[in-house]
Design a protein around this nucleic acid. Sequence first.
DNA 1: GATTAGGGTTTG
Length: 738
Amino acid sequence: MPVQVIDGTPGNLLPSYLQKVDLKYLQIGCDQASKYFQGTVILSYPLTKLVNGTEFFKIVLQESENSCSKTSTINVLFFGRLAGDCGKVVHQGIYAKPSIVTASETASMPVAPKYTYTPLNHLKGGTIVNLYGAVKFFKPPYISKGTDYCSVVTIVDQSNVKLTCTLFNGNLDALPKIYKIGDIVRFHRIKIREYNKQMQGITGIGFASLTFDGTVGAPIVPRTSSKSYSFTEEEQKTIEELRMWAASNLSVCGPTAKLSGVQPMLFFDLTCQLVGKAEVDGSSFLLKVWDGTKCPYPSWKVLVEESDLEGDKVLIRRLRNLIVDILVYDNHVKLAKSLKVGSFLRIYSLHTKQASAENQPNVSYVEFHLHGGTCYGRGIRVLPENNPDVKELKAFMDSVNLTEFQSVESMSSMELDGIFGNLSYQSYSQRCQQLSVTVLTDHQHLDDTALNTILNSSVPQQYRIRAKLRTFKPEKLCQSVKLYCSKCNSLQEVPNDDDFDLILRDCAAAAPNPEVHNSLWYDSAVWDTENQGQRKIAVHFVKHDELLQEPEDTLIMVQGGTLKEIRKLSRRFKCIIPVRSTEEDLELLDLSAPFLLQGKIWHYGCKQCSNQKTIQNLSSLAEEEPSWEPTEIAQVLGIEPLQYVFVMKFTLDDGTGALDAYLFDYEKFFQIPASEVLTSSLLQEKMEMIMNILCPPGTKLDDLPWLECFIKSYNVKDGMEQQVCYQIYDTMVAEDVI
DNA sequence: GATTAGGGTTTG
């Protein structure tokens, strides 16, 4: 029997003439007849046959107590009967005393070898071993100061012993693809040595690794760059056991967070998509990323030249309220530069820092820094598209955009499916490029806020929004014009012509008092009417420098005229003030009538806030070169003028929600003065045309155009009830619409 | 062909 299996220390059972040698003795030419070699079987291959039928068996032995040999393992090849006998009894872990020893390399084997894995509490310096472990800590591969990428990985197994491995490779792909704490790794041919009185693992020739998701029950799919690797059912069991053990013995809840969950002064791992990048300076680099959620704090925007920014500008603009700017520094710059826009990243130990502007100490914002160095595993790792976290992120990002797009654009299901694929970027861009029919006159730097966010936010606040105009009120546009008193904030209807006519007729019933005709500052003229009984019309022409001016510069005061006559006069004279006469003086009519008519604009005063003064005060205006400004006239007459405003209710919808926002506009929004629209059919037609563009009748929401608006929320007390209202401002219809 | 780093937060 050429093979004998012995237990315990073999030394005493061997013939005494045999002398134990170590590997360095095994040289070609040395007499090995009286020598033996002892080692642990770290690898055995299944018994097989060579092409000529000879039985063949291979094992790898490792010296048990290696002290100074450079090589600690040796391939042992058995042929013929010995191979058959050994193959039946030799298995991994036993000591072996081979009869034939060769130091030559073997040809590659066509069968899978069986590996031995050393528990972490059985490691010895100077050995090369195979290991399994759960990742307790890791630094994602980074560019070392030498020639290679470096990754530092601390693993632990059921023995509860840790091993920190320093892994180098010029090829990033050859390093373990660890994405998070708790991942399971299998290292083959890792060198063990002592460093600082602790065991250390380090890459050597032939190092290879597999990495597995550490989640209990998750599919066991190895992550590796190796084209061929062994993987047995037994190893699946090993992984599941390690997963179970790690689940209860390893703190795997890493500091991951969504952007929506960031807090200032925090280090965390962010899983995100890169949408833009730009060089800032030699030691810092900008990454623009998003994860589909919104950072709850205002975040900084790092200023870079537009031309330096790489990425889809339209997409960046579209996602601007979800994108955060991350500055990466020093050693991370080189890696950051190499990142591809669109790729999914995990950024480890990202730092959020609260800061405030120098000139606005009350306004704070959050900065995102990836500082230099690799402490705490600080770094960036590209995640593959098939990574479960990436899949989840993509699904979430799709849903974010689906909500927005479903209601606002008609998209095919194909477009929806691949919204973040390359194909869809184009259609995405086209949608983003769709111009708004309104533009902001300020606040362009602000990000859009979704309507549902606004509806759920505290009041008062201001927002930039992008929405569609579903409906508006009043439908009859003339009804949107009101009179507003800025002093008492009251709104009132514009009196109609008939009301004015009635007041005029009332006044005309009383004859003008000749006592008050002609004075130092006006000349008076009286006309009789034909076939209208006693009615007389008195016109008082206000003089300047005791002289009458040209009619187009002249203010006249009219008494006893009808609406028709006054209209006629207003076409000729600059200003008309309807008056009546008392015993002592001329005086203004009731404030239900306009106190001043200038061409087509009729000026009204607030009944509540006006404190009428004598008409004699006008003489002071007449002395100087009179410009007859309505505000000046109102002021000297003690009248609080009412302003014409458009008041409309817009029902806005952005797909996330809908709200009613009031438009309160003198002229800015439509670029039409509210004061002139009632007396100009041309302006009325123009306004109608604009509203037809903003909200074409009979159009589906999907096909409606976009409106960029700035709105503010505010509370209104209606009796006991408090109501939240929204108002549009700093917004106007785009020039190409007008 | 050796070196790189050798876990434990920047200070922008």
